[in-house]
Design a protein around this nucleic acid. Structure first.
Lengths: 241, 241
DNA sequence: CACGCGAAATTGCGATCACAATGCACGAAC
DNA sequence: GTTCGTGCATTGTGATCGCAATTTCGCGTG
């Protein structure tokens, strides 16, 4: 475990704790870490090849964003378990904030944005065809936030990002069960049309509909799913690359 | 600066970094730290009498909650400056989430809650009479969140907490200028009546109106205020517990 | 007096060590 | 065979040290 660690100039772009944060964040969004399982700082650190320190920093951020939970007694941290209450609140919040962001982005949309969205959406459908769940989720996230960033609403964007972070594990459970084939991307086409036309209300409706469909599936899966809250004895086989 | 530091059993209640977090959080909510001023880890640590490490942890959380900003170039941190855009988004988010929480709390309200609210409100009015801004803000925060906690909506509650944290510095600026005497607490009485009657929509309206009045004052102050990002030479006197 | 320019101080970041506390497991007693 | 207690391993937390980079200030030059 004592490896030669390349010491980067450290000023080029991102700090180590940011990279660790992104790694765990991606693992959460794509659902690579199952809900309910416990993770430890040192195990994560060893897995990522860094010292526990930057992992601590990253974990602090994630806990603050409610993407990771910390047992107040144990002080041991884990992925928050999936409950119907949490999902209901997350859905409500998403249904309010994300259509709003889409509506604000519409007037500022341009040809470049639509082109970028079309490229992402093609990748998304490709992922759907081949059944690559991870790739689909990454593309879906990219699609939505390419729109939301255009709104130029920093505060709301950060809130939306936090919500996606919290809802990632839910998504993974759903698509792990239902499969990716059953989710049509029609709403994405509607959204792109509305953005192309700078139609704020149309974009709002399209995103709202897209969210509704996705959340419906999640709610159904959570209500029907028995072991969604995961076994506390879960093995943490997390491959954060 | 080499003091004998009492080593607490550490398992009694809260960790040091939590105390530091609470200290800075309180300082932000009550507006003890002015927007735009830069703070350093070591200076905060020295002021609090701890090592820079727990301060780093606390700051990490606060940055994640957007209560502190970090200059990507400098990597130096400061309180986010007050802009009309930020205020507009914060107002929108508050206007959506806080009435919702109040409405959810109303059916669960009981006599004990109303009594507690009445006590807080009396303290609040007392603070208004004597012109104690800090005490007023603490009481106002306590009033609102005594209600919101009753909703039992963990996710929404956390979001509301984050919003208050971001809007704290704004509040301080407003009340530092306008003075506390001009803010009537009538809406609080309405809210208490609605809660007592378990009237969800009434509680929603009361909180919405309360927010509107407060945010109107803030918006007016921000639009009119020139030196809102200014940095008073204030010594930030923060103390741990 | 103004303007660089270089050295010292400050700052954030990461690693390593120390410590208290909890979790876990192996083994002994009934 | 079941149960309880004792030891070791692991965990989170905090302090201290080192490093690189940026800021800051003083000094010399124009």
């Amino acid at each position: 475990m004592k490896e030669v660690r390349a010491r980067r100039p450290l000023a080029d772009s991102t700090a180590v704790h940011d990279q660790v944060y992104d790694a765990i964040r991606q693992a959460l969004i794509t659902g690579k870490i199952a809900p309910g399982v416990g993770v430890s700082l040192r195990s994560l650190a060893a897995e990522l090849g860094v010292s526990p320190m930057p992992v601590r920093d990253a974990v602090r951020r994630l806990v603050a964003e409610r993407a990771l939970a910390i047992n107040p007694a144990n002080k041991r941290l884990s992925v928050p378990s999936l409950s119907a209450e949490r999902l209901e609140q997350l859905e409500l919040a998403r249904q309010w904030i994300e259509p709003e962001l889409a509506a604000r982005a519409a007037p500022k949309a341009d040809e470049a944005l639509v082109r970028k969205l079309r490229a992402i959406d093609q990748d998304l459908e490709e992922a759907l065809r081949v059944g690559d769940v991870d790739r689909y989720m990454v593309a879906n996230h990219a699609f939505h936030f390419a729109i939301y960033e255009r709104a130029g609403a920093e505060v709301l964007l950060a809130m939306a990002g936090g919500l996606w972070l919290q809802i990632g594990p839910f998504m993974r459970v759903v698509f792990g069960r239902v499969g990716t084939g059953s989710l049509p991307a029609d709403r994405h086409a509607e959204a792109m049309d509305a953005l192309k036309a700078r139609d704020a209300e149309g974009a709002r409706r399209a995103i709202a509909a897209d969210l509704s469909e996705g959340m419906d599936k999640m709610r159904a899966a959570v209500e029907a799913g028995a072991g969604l809250t995961a076994a506390p004895t879960g093995q943490t086989v997390i491959t954060v690359s």
